[in-house]
Each structure stands twice: as structure tokens, then as C-alpha cells.
Write a protein that binds this DNA or RNA. Structure first.
Lengths: 150, 150
DNA sequence: TTAAGTGCAAAATCTTTGCAAATGT
DNA sequence: ACATTTGCAAAGATTTTGCACTTAA
């Protein structure tokens, strides 16, 4: 399982013309370990001094440019990262699912199967649409639970 | 018209228990002058040295807390501000309209009449929804025009 | 008069850049 | 061996904090 994951990650790097370095594999592991998107501060905190801050910036930027991960800016302006779907590639992100930003813990979840409606947007004259995304704000399951108890 | 606007802005401040200061009125003027939301860097640039950077931070924060304006974080993580509807008040923002973020000039437009669909979101168990917002990315009218010409 | 608002200085963060050393292929 | 990648130092930008001065009511 874990071996399997390592292989997947290594393949992912090679497929994108990137070298298999410890730092990059570590970041991929962290992203894989979370059910939610990982905020940059969180990743920083997890890696501690294992990876230089600057290196982390560069790794995340590279991954995003290659279409390996996508960036979601949450309601506070913080960058969050999550894996892209397989059909994402360099300069062609397809990221039309719903993002849920918990107003308590600030985690960002990528909700894949939320039955988003298909509809025609009525934009002002001259405006052309490239992408539409949905940001839901509310309480995630964990924070809802905590609130009940208090 | 302009006098009318000044009166409206003064009323707005008083109604929210804020003093009518030059700096605040200036910010309200800038927000009123734009059809799009105003980015913080833009506002900073417009006011130049008239208003201290720190004061601007505080004015925008205060306005947001009072429900006079709302903040929209654009795709680059930059803060943009626009007036709230009248039914917004302190700690109770109602900001369910569509935001359009131009991928070329980065302006953020608040689209009021875009016929947003009403639908039930299929969130995972335990998640509760507080607010749903729609972010459209694409080219605004001005940038579409420029692109045709080149 | 006096509470609220502003400006300035400085600290604390966050992000980027340049370059030399280390590493993967 | 060589291009990539990383770490460190330092610059640049953004955001916050503290405090004394100013101003609206």
C-alpha cells in the first residue's frame, strides 16, 4: 500500500520530467495523507526544518505548473493545495468541482460528487467564461461535531 | 449627483457609528467610482500618500466588520472590496451573488443579475452549509475586446 | 473635552531572487 | 559529467502592533 503509493508518486514525477528528490516525495506524501487540501502553512509546519521554506515554495509552484496539484485560495487568502484529476495537465487545469472551506478550522475540502447543476450563466455583454468554480462555506463534519458538544 | 453621493456616504458612516473623516470618505468615493470591486493595491495606488497604508488597512477592516463592504479574495489571493447590499450588517454578510474574476486584468466584478440556480448541494455527511459563492473566471468585456484586436 | 481616528516607526510575516553547494540521472 | 534541485542569505513586499498626535462630535 505504502510502497504502492511511493511508486505512484515516483511515476508522477518522472512522467512530468521532474527528478525524484526526497523533498518532492515528502510533499507528495503529505498531500496524499490528507483528506482535505493542504494549506501551505500546514505543509510548512509538518515538514518543519526538513525542507527549506524557499524550496517548498518552488516545489509547490513546479507541481502546480505541471498540473500535478491545483491551488485553492481560501476565504482568508491562504493557499491550499490538492491533487488534480488525471485529466489535468500543464496549462490546462480542469478543476470544476466544489470546494468547501470550513469557517471554523479553515480546511478546504474538494468535494467531487456534489451534483453540481449545469446551467447557462447570464453574464454581461462582452464577458466570456473560462471556468466556473463553487466555494461553499460552512462547518465541516469534525467542526459540526465539536460545536454540538459545547 | 456628486453632492448626493457625499451625503449618502456620510449617512453610511454615521449610521454605522463611525466618524466622518476625510480618509473614510475618500475610500468610499473610490469604491463608488469603480464598476468593479477595487483591489487593495489599486486603492493604495489611487490614494498615494493622501492616506497612510496602515490607516487604509484599518479603514477597510472597519468597513468590512460593519458590513459596509465585503472582501473578495481573487484568484491570486489579492483582497478586493465592494459595497455590500443593503441587507448586509455587522456579522451577517449576505453575499451570494456571482463574482467574476478576469484572468487578464484581474479585476473582480460583482455580477448581480446572473440568474443563479437554486439547488440542493449534496455535501458529505456532517457538513453544513452557511454560504455558497460562485467564482467565474474568464475575460471581462474590456479584455475580450483587446484580445480581438491583437 | 475626550473618545475615535490617523500617521509614523518598527516588528513580524510572507514571498521572491541570486548564487554556491549538493544531488539525481 | 551536467543540468536540476536545494539551502542559505538577503532583498522586497505585505500585514500587524504600539504609541503619540490629531480631529470629529
Amino acid at each position: 500500500m505504502s510502497t504502492n503509493q511511493l511508486e505512484r508518486h515516483e511515476t508522477l514525477l518522472v512522467k512530468n520530467g521532474l527528478k525524484k528528490t526526497g523533498a518532492r516525495l515528502r510533499v507528495l506524501d503529505i498531500l496524499s495523507a490528507s483528506d482535505a487540501a493542504s494549506s501551505q502553512p500546514d505543509i510548512e509546519h509538518i515538514v518543519g526544518k526538513e525542507i527549506d521554506r524557499v524550496t517548498l515554495y518552488r516545489i509547490l509552484k513546479t507541481f502546480e505548473e505541471k498540473g500535478i496539484i491545483h491551488r485553492i485560495i481560501d476565504n482568508q487568502g491562504t493557499a491550499n493545495y490538492a491533487f488534480c484529476h488525471e485529466d489535468c495537465s500543464e496549462h490546462a487545469h480542469h478543476d470544476e468541482h466544489l470546494h468547501f472551506n470550513c469557517s471554523n478550522c479553515q480546511k478546504v475540502y474538494c468535494i467531487e460528487h456534489a451534483h453540481l447543476p449545469q446551467f447557462k450563466l447570464n453574464l454581461p455583454k462582452g464577458f466570456s467564461l473560462q471556468q466556473l468554480s463553487f466555494i461553499a462555506t460552512g462547518l465541516c463534519a469534525a467542526c459540526s461535531e465539536k460545536q454540538k458538544q459545547s
